[in-house]
């Protein structure tokens, strides 16, 4: 795990730094609120004291309440919502979910989103890990050149290329295909994944491979048996962090998919909202269904997502 904080977990470093600082402020500082008066050294004094604490929690509520309202409204009936928009969701009603999941086709959209997103994440993580290993270890100048070629893709606004992508897909029969979408997302994830993974491979000592080669391992065995297990934390970061934008993407499925049995959630949701805009509770249920996997992912992998958000900050 130490590899994570050494590499891209920039957000972790302040937390590590802060602890000795706190301890250093002596017996006065019991946690984050040392007495304000007389704290002349003031090293660990949080700015703004208790008022700021309250403000920070109020802001947290402001960030969360709309999402909680979405959740609670999805458990209420439509009539109930219209007569009292701010009422409590008791007793819980699952009718809205039943309606969205079956008649609203969200079961289909959900399956499509899962298929496309997982396919793309597995694809881009696999090819990027192989490439990143070679880029980190290759000594020839061509690898430097290839690395900058891949990294140039980090800032490319790929959505602007939607027309050529459309005609490319049209030419090879990938329009209206979930596999086409997965290939496209897999390709668009390559620059970020290579960027993160190359950094990680560079931190591993070369003696590992030398030892493996002496023992008669082939390059592939060395890579697969020894190197890949060592960068597992980085693989998790890359996979989790790529999952979110692919799951949420809207323009590509909007343009590249035709048949609504192939729609992913954002496009299916748009269709459902267009046809059922006044069936509020079912729409809320659809919003929750679209969001839930990401929240679940966030709860199990906060660390990876935060690491991904701050990747490259150390540069």
């Amino acid at each position: 795990m130490s590899v994570v904080s050494a590499g891209i977990g920039t957000a972790d470093e302040p937390a590590v730094d802060a602890d000795p600082t706190l301890a250093g402020s002596g017996g006065t500082g019991s946690g984050p609120r040392p007495p304000r008066r007389g704290a002349t050294r003031g090293r660990a004094t949080p700015v703004g004291g208790r008022t700021a604490s309250v403000l920070l929690w109020v802001y947290a509520a402001f960030a969360l309440v709309p999402l909680l309202l979405m959740l609670s409204s999805s458990f209420r009936s439509n009539g109930d919502l219209i007569s009292n928009p701010l009422g409590a969701p008791w007793p819980l009603s699952f009718d809205a979910y039943r309606e969205a999941w079956t008649t609203g086709n969200f079961a289909t959209y959900f399956g499509n989103s899962l298929l496309v997103t997982l396919g793309a994440v597995v694809l881009s993580t696999t090819v990027s890990t192989m490439a990143a290993y070679a880029l980190a270890r290759g000594r020839s100048r061509i690898f430097r050149w290839l690395e900058s070629l891949f990294l140039s893709g980090l800032m490319l606004p790929i959505h602007l290329a939607i027309l050529p992508i459309f005609y490319l897909f049209d030419g090879v029969g990938l329009v209206d295909s979930r596999m086409g979408l997965a290939l496209l997302y897999g390709a668009s994830g390559v620059p970020f994944s290579i960027f993160v993974l190359t950094t990680f491979f560079r931190q591993l000592p070369e003696e590992l491979e030398e030892a493996a080669t002496l023992d008669g391992a082939s390059p592939w065995q060395t890579f697969w048996r020894i190197m890949v297990p060592l960068v597992r934390p980085a693989l998790a970061t890359v996979a989790v962090f790529r999952f979110v934008p692919i799951w949420n993407d809207f323009l590509f499925p909007l343009v590249l998919l035709r048949d609504d049995s192939k729609y992913t959630l954002p496009v299916g949701l748009t269709q459902f909202f267009g046809e059922n805009a006044t069936n509020y509770s079912a729409v809320f249920a659809g919003l929750v269904i679209t969001t839930l996997p990401l929240i679940a992912l966030f709860l199990v992998a906060t660390r990876q997502i935060v690491a991904g958000l701050t990747a490259g900050m150390s540069k």
Partner: peptide, 21 residues
């Protein structure tokens, strides 16, 4: 060997990102 390792990523990136861009 290194180039063999890079090829799949390069092919994917080239066809679906660089060429359309």
């Amino acid at each position: 060997t290194g180039l063999l390792f890079v090829t799949p990523a390069l092919a994917l990136f080239g066809v679906f990102v660089l060429y359309p861009m």
